[in-house]
Amino acid sequence: MTAAAHTAALALGDDALVLSHRLGEWAGHAPVLEEEVALANIALDLLGQARVLLSMAGDEDELAYLREERAFRNLQLVEQPNGDFAHTLARQLYFSTYQHLLYGQLATGDSVFAPLAGKAVHETAYHRDHAEQWTRRLGDGTEESHRRMQRAATALWQFTGEMFQPVEGVPADWQQLERSWQQSVTEVLTSATLEVPEGPRTGAWKAGAGRQGLHTESFGRMLAEMQHLHRSHPGARW
């Protein structure tokens, strides 16, 4: 595997791993049982993708449990804390739209990622559908749910520009990806009676350098929890 493909596998694999862990944090806390199950199932899909991608880059367990924060290459978006249900859904909307479109492109190519993308694109279609339907339900729901969904969509907007920085080794048409993403997200937010956020996504005030290993404060705490067992009990097995 080339160095570029290695970097790329880490970037895509870390996105899936980190978001999987965040979604797993909802277990026991989701607003209704059905959502508890749905979020756990989405997390499981993402974990499966992470295992395939990280195994392409090395030993999956070592990469997941023994790397330091600065060695992770995931987007800052996926490491953002769950917040309320609306925050989790806004994060899902932004990320699953991106991942579905990206895998759609990779699935039709001939890169090392094509087999995984060809499979995962069907799974992420369900994740995207789940997020879009909830965004509409909450945005076009009660005054309270509308207010919260708007707050969440706006709060996470600054992390979305990073998704379209080209990743070396990922043969995607990034401009096309960004156009499709913006069009889709705009359509969903608008149909949910929500304002498309206007804050900066690029430029001096943008957030996001996760692909370069710079992460937000809460990521360290998440990793501490995720890695604690493996580090405390090396080689432990179920």
């Binding site: 559908d129 339907q133 509409r136």
Partner: peptide, 26 residues
Amino acid sequence: AGPVAVPLGPTRTGAAGAAHAGAGAG
């Protein structure tokens, strides 16, 4: 076939399809 999108229950602006919507997800 990918996901089969379904209409959700009553919303503020979209009452269509809401008449027979249950209290559940739609």
